[in-house]
Write a protein that binds this DNA or RNA. Structure first.
Lengths: 337, 337
DNA sequence: ATAATTTTTGCAACCGGTTGCATTAATTGT
DNA sequence: ACAATTAATGCAACCGGTTGCAAAAATTAT
């Protein structure tokens, strides 16, 4: 069907090696030979079969892009950035959707069957052993949006969730809130635990501030909404730090239903800064996740691994910043800190 | 590194063919041979290299998933469905992000280099010749969310945009609106043109209804917002049909800024029914795009093509339905139709 | 038990490339 | 003009599998 190396070599009247060499850079080919081969290749519309060459070179330029996060709008942006960045480096993303059913083992085997050069795992809500499974299989792996640890087993790039929790706490304190709440995603997720930890730790410096906590059943609009409905029915706080923008927006919806107004009656700060958060009928104050930095750093780490597979695991942390919008009351200029 | 066929054959003390056959179903292998080989394979942790086998079989089980739509939240859902469905059929999506720079030719070459078994193009805003380029390269191709035509050059599955326009028109008429507007995406897009055409055609049956039209500069929140701001500054209509939910939400934001209320002062109907549209602080009445049906039908068509490459191009159309929420006034029970 | 038939197995060539090595051609030095 | 180098080319083996064909083994028939 498609023309092969042999076809080109015959048409050009040269050896197969010669053709192969004109398509591998760094190989020794004379100018006239190259021209001759290129002519024949053009005539035939030939382009080399990466997969066949991968057999001998051992490189497929395929990168497994693994995620289980196909529900959070922020991940569309993540996929956009990843695919562009990979394409820019001549790499191809083989997408793996890690649904609840599929077990890790299976995905590892799958990606090895396609002999991917490396794997990028993009998710914060993944079983911790998952990335390691790839590492153990001898495949370079980078865990983007993963959990920080001081002694990483695999490359991790993301944010410091504890610090993010502290940041949220500081910003609520700076606005003079005295009764604050943490509303996390599913309690089990380590990212949630870390955010909570930082949040509580920072607030511990101010014993007069009352801190409560609760957890939505999922990282979804509905879960956030239901959780906030429950909170409003009880003895509510003045402001909440929600573990995700989607939860925040669900919470806002519940608040709105109750005819309460934001930020006068109740304050909300989210995390992620998904695009919608900036839409001006949402206008959510939130902590921005430096997505672009995380993605590019992950890719950089991945290409470094491809060059030097022995590279030691590294953790890269990016700072988060608050994006001030309309769901928290203004900074209190009076008072101390 | 990873164990190969040869390793297994040596350990089991059988020929390489024997090993190959135990991993190809339909091949003739005795029960004891199979057991013996499987034992050796398990010991070594062997699993066959799909890429190597593709050399002889001609099948990679790789499907190019091509899109340029990494900005519309609805496409996250689309990717989710596609990847799951493909995985369910033992196929792997090779994701291609068709940015503005990358030219079609290039992507075609790229996917041929990886000898993908087929290509699914998922986008409504693609240059028309694009899908054909794959077809011409002899690769089975399905255009999901593509434009309908009576004599399709390639498989297309999607909705009838003209009909969707009519549907919007009918629902506005049924609610007694007398001055209605069409607010489309970029004017050039054929999908926009078709929706407009249907919208206008249906309304032509009622000459007393005044119809206006305008186009946002992009399928984005901001573009929708700006366009609606412009419309509100002029002689506005009573209700608008927006070519996309994202535009609708932008429009709602502009309306809200003006202290106008929906649906009392102004009605909006969107198209897509993205998840956010149902969030209850948006609550957009919209025309639901049958995404799941389109995706599954596309995959079905693709697998059919893989079985029988000679299959003639076919267009599959799915009906759209209105999802009633809060941005259009209630049906007028009085009056005729 | 022997012949005829069917099933299982191994050999060897092939898929579309790459690459070490030996050979030939082109350069350079003198 | 001739030897010494260096660059370009082709041969053949290999990457990790598959598969047509013939030989060997197992079944079935007589």
């Amino acid at each position: 069907m498609a023309p092969t190396l042999k076809d080109v070599s015959e048409r050009a009247g040269v050896s197969r090696s010669a053709v192969s060499r004109t398509f591998t850079d760094g190989a020794s080919v004379s100018a006239k030979m190259r021209k001759r081969v290129e002519k024949a290749a053009d005539d035939l519309g030939y382009s080399p079969n990466v997969l066949a060459s991968s057999l001998t070179t051992g490189r497929t330029k395929l990168i497994g892009l693994v995620s289980n996060n196909f529900h959070n709008p922020i991940f569309l942006e993540v996929f956009d950035l990843f695919t562009r960045a990979l394409q820019g480096k001549g790499l191809r993303p083989l997408l793996v959707n890690l649904t609840d059913e599929t077990d890790p083992e299976n995905s590892v085997r799958l990606l090895r069957q396609y002999s991917v050069d490396g794997v990028v795992v993009a998710s914060s809500t993944l079983p911790p052993g998952f990335g390691k499974a790839f590492r153990d299989a001898g495949v370079p792996v980078v865990h983007a949006f993963g959990r920080m640890t001081s002694a990483p087993q695999i490359h991790v790039v993301g944010i410091d969730n504890i610090e993010a929790g502290r940041l949220a706490a500081r910003s609520l304190m700076a606005r003079g809130y005295r009764r604050v709440g943490f509303m996390g995603g599913p309690e089990a997720a380590s990212s949630t635990q870390d955010r909570l930890e930082g949040f509580v730790a920072e607030l511990a410096t101010r014993p007069e501030i009352n801190v409560s906590q609760s957890f939505a059943s999922a990282y979804s609009f509905d879960a956030g909404r239901r959780e906030m409905q429950a909170l409003l029915a009880g003895n509510r706080a003045e402001a909440y730090f929600c573990g995700d923008d989607v939860l925040s927006i669900g919470a806002l919806s519940a608040i709105q239903d109750r005819q309460l107004s934001v930020p006068q009656d109740i304050g909300i700060i989210g995390l992620n800064d998904m695009e919608i958060a900036g839409w001006n009928n949402i206008n959510l104050t939130t902590i921005r996740l430096p997505i672009s930095e995380i993605v590019h750093s992950s890719i950089e780490l991945m290409t470094a691994m491809l060059r030097d597979p022995g590279r030691l695991p590294e953790a890269r942390i990016f700072a988060c910043h608050i994006v001030e919008r309309g769901t928290l009351r203004p900074l209190q200029t009076t008072g101390a800190d």
